[in-house]
Amino acid sequence: MPAATASAQDTITSLQRIASQVRRDIVRQVHAAQSGHPGGSLGCADFLTALYFHILRHDPKAWTMDGRGQDLFFLSNGHISPVWYSVLARSGYFPISELATFRRINGRLQGHPTTHEGLPGVRMASGSLGQGLSVAIGAALAKKLNGDDRLVYTLHGDGELQEGQIWEAAMLAAAKKLDNLISTVDWNGRQIDGDVDDVLPLGDLPAKWKAFGWEVLEAEGNDMQALLEAMEEAKARTGRGKPVMVLMRTEMGQGVDFMMNSHAWHGIAPNDAQLAGALAQLPETLGDY
């Protein structure tokens, strides 16, 4: 990989600093609620930071449900809400202090994201897996009908790809030549019950998406420079008659050593000592909420 230019290196450094704070937000939210999903959230912290602070063309202060003239993002694997809430808050969709209400009664930051409480930045409920790609297709079709040239992005878990609806949607996106859609997969190889290869193997994932008629890219999902390059390449491949898939190799729990290399931290909360151990590995770059 070529070395980044000076200004590109500044961007990468800046995004890495944000991602460190996002990771602190994740473990602090899950610790405070004593429930939630830190593993996948940490693994996707680099991608969602890159997306919200560099890739998406969006205006958090002028947020509307219909999102005309804006890029849209749909989180299909809704259980990694802590990372999404962090980047939404820190990019200006709602007050950062609201992260303290994660999973609290009468709050907007539900365990799984929803439109039901009117949280800005969220356009669809997710949690029951496999539905977000279909929704994104609808939103992308509407953009084409509306003459809106902005893009629609999605994120899915790799375990989520076991849901049949994903493949129904994959066929339709290709059939409708939805070239304003960029989907991504958190390809960490782990799910609740263990390794994806043990639970239900996905087979040759890049070949599968290619066979379904998609443009397919692979990227290192925890390497900021590689991520940015892959997403730029993904954007360059839009408008060519095919939907685009970016398969991101990630590590569940990335950034907190004792949460990595296992599926164990998919959906459990750290205790006080574990929180301290995690925060010690994650520099506070933007100030805790």
Binding site: M124, L133, V135, A142
Partner: peptide, 8 residues
Amino acid sequence: GVAAGLTI
């Protein structure tokens, strides 16, 4: 799901 997305 596609129908839901179209409403957006």
